[in-house]
C-alpha cells in the first residue's frame, strides 16, 4: 500500500534532473532582493496591522493632548439631555 501511495503521489518523481538543475542554479546565482506583491503583504498582515495600531494610538494620544480640558461627564450628559443650565 505504501508503494502504491508513493506512486500515486508524484508520477515523475524519479526524474530529479530539473529539481537538481534548479537548486544548483539558485545556489550559484547571487540572491536578489525580493519585492513582495500586495497579496503576500496581505497574507502576512502583522507588520501592517502593527503599524496601523501604532498610528491609531498616536492619533488618540495627540487628540487627548490637544483637546481642551473637558467638563466632567455628568455635566456633559445633563447638557445633552437638556437638563443643564
Amino acid at each position: 500500500m505504501d508503494a502504491a501511495l508513493a506512486r500515486a503521489l508524484y508520477a515523475g518523481a524519479e526524474d530529479i534532473a530539473p529539481l537538481s538543475r534548479a537548486v544548483l542554479t539558485r545556489l550559484v546565482e547571487p540572491s536578489k532582493p525580493v519585492r513582495l506583491p500586495l497579496s503576500e503583504v496581505l497574507v502576512q498582515p502583522l507588520p501592517v496591522a502593527a503599524l496601523f495600531l501604532f498610528l491609531l494610538g498616536l492619533a488618540a494620544l495627540s487628540g487627548y493632548l490637544a483637546a481642551p480640558a473637558a467638563p466632567d461627564e455628568i455635566s456633559v450628559i445633563a447638557e445633552l439631555l437638556g437638563l443643564g443650565n
Binding site: L5, L9, Y10, A13, E14, L19, S20
Partner: peptide, 26 residues
Amino acid sequence: RQAMALLIRRHGPGLRRFLTGVLTTP
C-alpha cells in the same frame, strides 16, 4: 555543490512525493 547534487539524487524523489501529499496545493 556536488554533495548537494548527491543529496538531491538520494532524497529528491521522496521529498517531492512527501510534499505533494502534505501540501494543500500539490
